[in-house]
Design a protein around this nucleic acid. Structure first.
Lengths: 234, 234
DNA sequence: ACAAAAGTGTTGAAAATACACCCATGT
DNA sequence: ACATGGGTGTATTTTCAACACTTTTGT
């Protein structure tokens, strides 16, 4: 039989490649999502994720960071690729695939003026408006991945400021998983992991007594990982 | 201040979009990967994953299935998107991003002639040759995801024939995680999940006594999932 | 003095681990 | 009869889950 070079090596068609950002924040005990009112046709005026085409000379993850910077003013944000959406008819205009990436930002940090200017709005996760195209699917998938990952990696910490209190951390996990946790068991479990460093300061913004602040200890976390341990909160 | 529509809505450049397939198999107690000797320049003769450009009128996941079919002759294979590789210089020739997908196939099924014809070869996971471009990274990432997923979802079963024995299943998990498991504890745990249906047949290919065959029970598994259970083996 | 959130221990149940021998069968 | 892999039970340790009161401090 003759050896035919398969067709697949030859078909070379180009497509539009975009990235969309699912931006999670945490504020007042609520898990939130940053959404945008589209300023341009088509679908002008509808809520959507923020996205951009990826430039020819730009890494995809860099494109995500660029978008995030343009919107929030933030650099150095935790961002992770979620999934690529590539149904041939997902965008009615032209063939465009989208690499969705999700970001976790601590909501005390972003630039509010910038967000207002871009007609963006923080929505509670339980109360999202309808979104264009496959953006609702993206959000569902991102939530699922966030929940999976927050169980075994400390990415939940990315949603908090550098220094945070245990009640804040607990409330974050409660918001992510939509459950109520017992504070005694929660503290026991978290502290037993030895990945939190207790500081000598207190945060008094949430109570008169004040709660001790902690920092996440990446060194200890990495040691823990290497020894094959699984990080399970909640 | 004037509201400027951000640049990002306007840059529209097209790129090549490819998909690469990480094909896992399980055979003789070893976890294996199907690799290909490249038939075309550039990098002709080097080992690589098998891939293809995605066609303009083709969903990305469909492209993956097409590639898999061309190589193994198999339809209806478990396949899952891994990650999109989009560094701007990942391919030296032109800007090309690749959506990596991984497949799990039960090694008794594929078409050997087809594989020979395509100059493909099954490599043990512990003994892989060097690969082109970022394909080694893809394989590492796929392994990590396989290990993560096999812990909480029954995807390990995809690597076995429809009917399999408990010693086979145990050996599969041992191959995935590179550990030795205690057969009593393993059986206890797996059977306690109630997702296996014991058949009245035995497989005598591995021992004189023969081992009972089991089938995976998707109904019970789905019930289990809905009740929020986490599937943890090993 | 009181309201409001922070912090703290114990007990019982359940799950995970460690561990060694008999069984069935083909040769 | 023996070699080979299949199959089984129990005791110990560890982890998880349930549960309520005292402390601190600003008003």
């Amino acid at each position: 039989m003759t050896q035919k070079i398969p067709d697949l090596y030859q078909v070379k068609e180009k497509m539009y490649v975009a990235t969309d950002c699912i931006i999670f924040g945490f504020d007042s005990g609520k898990l939130k999502l940053l959404l945008f009112k589209r300023l341009v046709e088509p679908l002008k005026g509808r809520w959507s994720l923020i996205g951009s085409f990826v430039r020819l000379d730009e890494d995809i993850d860099v494109a995500g960071k660029r978008v995030l910077k343009e919107i929030t003013g933030l650099d150095n944000v935790f961002m992770q690729q979620l999934k690529t959406y590539g149904k041939k008819d997902r965008d009615p205009g032209y063939r465009c695939i989208s690499v969705a990436q999700y970001a976790l930002i601590s909501s005390d940090e972003h630039d509010e003026d910038l967000i207002n200017e871009k007609k963006a709005h923080w929505f509670e996760i339980k109360d999202l408006p309808g979104l264009i195209l496959d953006h609702e699917q993206m959000v569902q998938d991102a939530l699922e991945q966030l929940r999976n990952n927050a169980r075994y990696k400390p990415i939940g910490f990315e949603l908090l400021p550098e220094k945070f209190t245990l009640p804040q951390l607990q409330s974050l996990y409660e918001a992510i998983y939509q459950v109520k946790l017992d504070s005694r068991n929660f503290r026991k479990k978290v502290l037993s992991l030895n990945v939190l460093e207790k500081l000598d300061e207190k945060d008094k913004s949430a109570s008169k007594r004040g709660a001790f602040l902690y920092k996440f200890d990446y060194n200890n976390y990495n040691k823990l990982r290497e020894s094959g341990y699984h990080f399970v909160i909640a």
